[in-house]
Structures are given as structure tokens and as C-alpha cells.
Amino acid sequence: MYYRVPSFLGALLTASPLAKDKKGIFNWILQRASACVLLAYFLFTIAYIAVNPDLDYPRWRQLYSSSVMQIFSLLAVLALVTHALIGLWCVYTDYLTERLLGPKATLLRNSFQAVTVAITAAYVIWTFSIFWSL
């Protein structure tokens, strides 16, 4: 029998101020923290719709106008930006590589990255405009 340190404990230890290069481990922690926020947000929203089949407009608008839901939504948007950018970066750097696609891969990957950032920014602006007009 042997004991292994759970990944998240290892991550927290590695991310300590004593560690030199923390970018990777910091992203690792951010990815999991943002996942928890998004999980809570989507579960709440889906559950709310599921238990309120006769939902009408005043109640729906009232829900999203409440300050608790506005803060929750703001957190979810921040988590979404973090989670999507880290996750898609992982996918691009694994598959859009010179080994798999040849010398044009770097340009292609950077283009995908730029489009991803642009779409994410558009989502953020869109979400803010939705909540701004409430």
C-alpha cells in the first residue's frame, strides 16, 4: 500500500509562493475553480426551469433582476472566460501542431486563438448588455 497526494493538494503545494514557474499549475487550479462555478450556475438554471414548467415572464425577469442572480451571473461569465480560454488553448496546442499539420500549424493555431478570444469577448459584451438592460 502506498499513499498518493491528491492532485489538488499537489497543485496547491506547487502553486505556493516558493515555486518558481507557476503558470501551468495556476491554469490547472483556475480550470477547476471555474468548473465548479459553472457547474453550480448551470445546475441551478436547469433545475429552476425544470421545477417551474409554468414559468411566466414577470417571474423570469424578476429572477435575473435580483442582485444575487446578477452577482452569480457575473461570476459565471468570469468563470466562462477562464474555462473556455484555458480549455481551448489545451485543445489547440495538442492538435494544431507542426507534427500533425506541418509548418503552417503555428499560424493556423494562432488564428484559432485569435478567433477564440474574439468570440469570448463578444460573449462577454453580449452578456453584459443583457444584464445592463434589466
Binding site: R4, P6, S7, F8, L9, R32, A35, L39
Partner: peptide, 13 residues
């Protein structure tokens, strides 16, 4: 979400 929870469980050891 389900596979993400599986990942989090594994991260917890």
C-alpha cells in the same frame, strides 16, 4: 458536466 465531476473526483485522489 458529468465527466467534469469525474475529473474533480480523481483530482481529490
Amino acid at each position: 458536466m458529468v465527466m467534469g465531476i469525474r475529473h474533480l473526483v480523481m483530482d481529490a485522489g
